[in-house]
Nucleic acid binder design. Structure first.
Lengths: 356, 356
DNA sequence: GTGAAAGCGCTAACAT
DNA sequence: ATGTTAGCGCTTTCAC
């Protein structure tokens, strides 16, 4: 027997060879059992499992990844802001990924700057992820980036400079949701609807603006100037203070629940009643805002559906590179009418004519 | 020259050998440059970097992990609920981990059941993480679990059955925060303070209850029966309905902002004024609740500090296994007094005597 | 300062 | 149904 040279730290952890020895089979058979491959006798399978259990064996994913070229992991580039929307989308994604038998690697981009997104994707690629999901891309100044794994975009199509092995997009119905919110207000009898938008670089912002514009245009309503916020309640509050002095506004659609809350607060502080004088609709569907005064009318983003559907598509693209993709379900559009919206106050003189 | 057999998919991606060839150096030198090791001439370093750039080379982390036995990644077991508290803690952790030069692997446990936590940790270990962080452990029915990497517990000490190579704990000052919230109410003149707690299995729940009890005991105040919620606004609302009919309660400390919001809503619906009749304090510090009526008095969890401090400790334990740990800073305790708290209504008869 | 050789623990391809 | 052999792409050891 050749003298085995002891290595410095002979890593006491059991390896597949140990399992094979204890079970009395070959390493390959152990591998087959652990990967659920066919052509293993029940007897062998049982022995392997017992041996693994007995030894406290834990598979080494790095070795598997190196040998197989796959990691069974999916990377996600998320916005590092703890807003309800992004956070709950991330939780849904994690769940869907885990259900699909993959693990998750997360890289946050603090403010979603394009070069940060590129860097985040590069970092995920080095980690060898089998697929990438970009949850809320930025619209402007995209950085060219190529990847050789499938990529899923949630909520927005990728920038043209983005080239992937395969590119998938699943919507969160932002346009339709914004449109539904605006139409709800118009249906209530408001002459027009103001819009408090998020930061302009966000795709999400753009979609909501366009949905709002579409609803206005369809009714021939006048399009008032945009209000700008940064998703925070504080920015909604600032917008509300500016708006409160303008007696002509009777309805506002805010691009986020928190901005809507800040807006309402400023309006009320200024003596304007909500919803009697001004109606406000939010965007996101955070359930806690059913318990404030007035309960916030909002629109619910179908994160659960988008995450599940998107990951399904992504995993399909990873596992069956050739096959055509199953069609994506359309995400549901859900308007949650609560107490922050009402018909506009009747005009002095009772006129319904537009006062352009 | 021996005939090289072409493999089926010769993976077009450049490897370190390609970089070495282009740079005119050995693979080992490439490795040295990529790892920032000393003993490389500036000239060699420059050529390697240029070659890597030119080829679009990306290091293979799986191979590195296999060879070195380290992944430079940290795994976190998080509660898969999108509450503000847990979500923002996770974001802070991700940031701290990234700043330390590590990558993050996340596994959510939907409801934090002990066996789920054990499974999550096992999954992370298979992935070869260099360290583990358990962000909000459960108190009851712990599953024995051994790990050979350092583990960081945020907000609670590990269960006794938990054995790690090295165990670190960093607090979020929950006890002190709960105590501060309760004392604030007592200082305002309330005879006692009711507590709306979270689910009992949560460590976080336990800490808050104990802090509340400590404050009460220190003042010799009577300890009323506990109210139970599940962190949701809906559960706070339910508790509020039950409480509204009890004329003796004047102050409530809720273990979460959202529960506080639901509670206040129920109280007001029942005709009780907040803060005039009943004062309410929340827990978490979500800034949006500064913009509701009444603005919520709350207590801010030092997530930023806890995450940064905890990861610093964990990385230290990973990289210097022997060394003594630098002492942990005490997390700051921050009470945010807003509008939901006030002195108790004056008693009929003006008596200040306790009506036991 | 640099390089050659020998694995890390697993799966792939091809036996049998 | 199972085993054998040859790597995956990197870092390690140790020689130069």
């Amino acid at each position: 027997m050749a003298p085995e040279v002891e290595r410095v730290a002979p890593s006491t952890a059991p390896r597949s060879a140990d399992v094979a020895r204890v079970a009395g089979v070959s390493r390959k058979t152990v591998s087959r059992v652990l990967n659920g491959e066919p052509y293993v006798s029940d007897e062998a399978r049982r022995r392997v499992l017992a041996a693994a259990e007995e030894l406290g064996y834990r598979l080494n994913h790095a070795a598997r990844a190196l040998a197989s070229g796959r990691t069974r992991s999916i990377g996600v580039v998320a916005l590092g802001t703890a807003g309800y929307g992004t956070a709950s989308l991330l939780v849904r994604i994690e769940h869907a990924v885990r259900d699909a038998g993959y693990t998750l690697r997360v890289v946050n981009t603090p403010d979603g700057a394009p070069e940060d997104i590129a860097g985040a994707v590069a970092s995920l690629l080095e980690q060898g992820v089998d697929g990438v999901v970009v949850s809320e891309p930025i619209v402007k100044g995209d950085v060219p980036l190529r990847l050789d794994v499938p990529a899923l975009f949630i909520g927005a199509p990728p920038a043209p400079s983005f080239t992937a092995n395969r590119t998938l997009t699943v919507g969160v119905a932002a346009h339709e949701l914004a449109r539904a919110a605006t139409e709800h207000l118009l249906d209530l009898g408001h002459q027009t609807v103001h819009h408090l938008a998020g930061p302009r670089q966000w795709y999400a912002t753009k979609d909501r603006i366009e949905g709002w514009q579409a609803a206005l245009a369809a009714r021939g309503a006048h399009e008032p100037p945009l209000l700008n916020g940064d998703w925070s309640a504080a920015s909604g509050y600032a917008a509300g203070r500016a708006l409160a002095s303008d007696g002509s506004v009777t309805a506002v659609f805010a691009a986020g629940d928190e901005m809507a809350i800040g807006l309402i607060h400023a309006l009320r502080e200024a003596g304007r009643r909500v919803p009697e004088d001004i109606s406000v609709v939010g965007f996101d569907g955070n359930p806690v805002f059913a318990y404030v005064s007035p309960p916030l009318t909002t629109v619910r983003q179908p994160f659960e559906a988008a995450a599940r559907e998107g990951i399904r598509l992504l995993v399909h693209a990873i596992e069956k590179p050739g096959a055509e993709l199953p069609p994506a379900d359309e995400p549901p559009v859900e308007l949650v009418v609560r107490g922050s919206t009402a018909p506009p106050p009747s005009r002095p003189g009772g006129s319904v004519l537009r006062t352009t």
